[in-house]
Design a protein around this nucleic acid. Structure first.
Lengths: 191, 191
DNA sequence: GCTAACTCGTACGTGTGTGTACGAGTTAAC
DNA sequence: GTTAACTCGTACACACACGTACGAGTTAGC
């Protein structure tokens, strides 16, 4: 993340890195086993250019995951957190379900190559945001308290993952997802 | 499945096949990318014995999946389907959540190597059972009707998958799963 | 316009998993 | 007890992905 190099990168290098990371996100979301070659193709650069900026595939996977999480944080930061937790959650899910499901695919790619615990560490901030919201909803008395919070967070994640899968296999239209997901998740949280 | 060979297999061969299939289920559930070597080790036989009965790895994966689904069907067949659909579902989930979660891992292994659609074809019978139950619950007025049935079936599947993951990572105790899953799923189906 | 940075193709060495070939030893079936 | 089936080790050919080495061509930065 932080640029700790002696000399600053040239503009075209910066551009390449951005394309590579974007390509990695795209390729790894489609297939967690995507090769460096696949990623280079998705990024529209040569494989050697990739190795010019990332020493190993795991390093690349981590960069892609970190970038996706950063983008998620950014998007979520723009969501109004005031008011009824149920409405907040609806807004949150509506604006981020696709991103979360992308992260999920990346997460599974990362779990295969990154050291134990590293994934959860990177992912902690995102999970924490949802967790706080649920806690507030519980205090306000609109969300149930008979299920562990970590469980609920996890289930939400899996529901989103399921939604992405349904879209991929063509059984659910993309524009129907927010409604389905919202109804489902609110049912779970309201008891 | 059906034995279409000219001569019947010898008893020891039959035994080997059973061990191999069991080993494949175990190994692939732990890791969908398990190698033929891993599977042979899990089965307690040599790799060459595996190739003596299964020509290719995909063939082996399919056999493992088919066997797991068959075992699932068998287990589910023993569940009383009479009475309140909610109670039936509770019994169903309680007795099969671990099996379903195993199938899920196998399913993902299968999706990588089996031709498009083959997986869903094999899995259809299992999904169908849950689907019929939900439909009955809708007729009885205890399950919601504002969500597509295929969506609900899919979500249940993902909830179970999530449960298995929580157990694997040690954040949920195995004996707490039935209660968590039941509460969660009933919330979803009841609206 | 000079220079260093960057792109990226070709080629290579390595590791690993698949599936085949061979063959010696073991065991079920009659 | 004879035979055919079965087990399973060693060895091998093959494919494929990773990561490195080299080097020629291109481009940003001053």
């Amino acid at each position: 993340m932080a640029d700790t190099r002696a000399r600053p990168r040239r503009a075209d290098a910066e551009r390449s890195i951005a394309r590579i990371v974007a390509g990695a996100r795209a390729a790894l979301s489609r297939d967690p086993d995507a090769t460096v070659d696949d990623i280079a193709a998705a990024a529209g650069v040569g494989r050697m250019t990739v190795y010019g900026h990332f020493r190993t595939r795991p390093e690349l996977v981590e960069a892609a995951l970190a970038d996706a999480l950063r983008a998620g944080e950014e998007k979520l930061a723009g969501v109004d957190l005031e008011g009824d937790p149920r409405h907040v959650l609806t807004r949150l899910l509506g604006s981020s379900w696709s991103l979360v499901s992308e992260s999920n695919a990346l997460l599974s790619a990362a779990e295969k190559v990154l050291p134990e615990g590293r994934v959860r560490q990177l992912h902690a901030a995102a999970a924490d945001r949802v967790e706080r919201l649920i806690r507030r909803g519980q205090r306000d008395g609109v969300f149930r308290t008979d299920l562990p919070i970590t469980w609920m967070v996890n289930v939400i994640q899996h529901v989103l993952h399921g939604a992405a899968e349904e879209v991929r296999t063509g059984r659910v239209r993309e524009r129907d997802v927010p409604d389905l997901v919202t109804k489902t998740v609110l049912s779970i949280l309201s008891g």
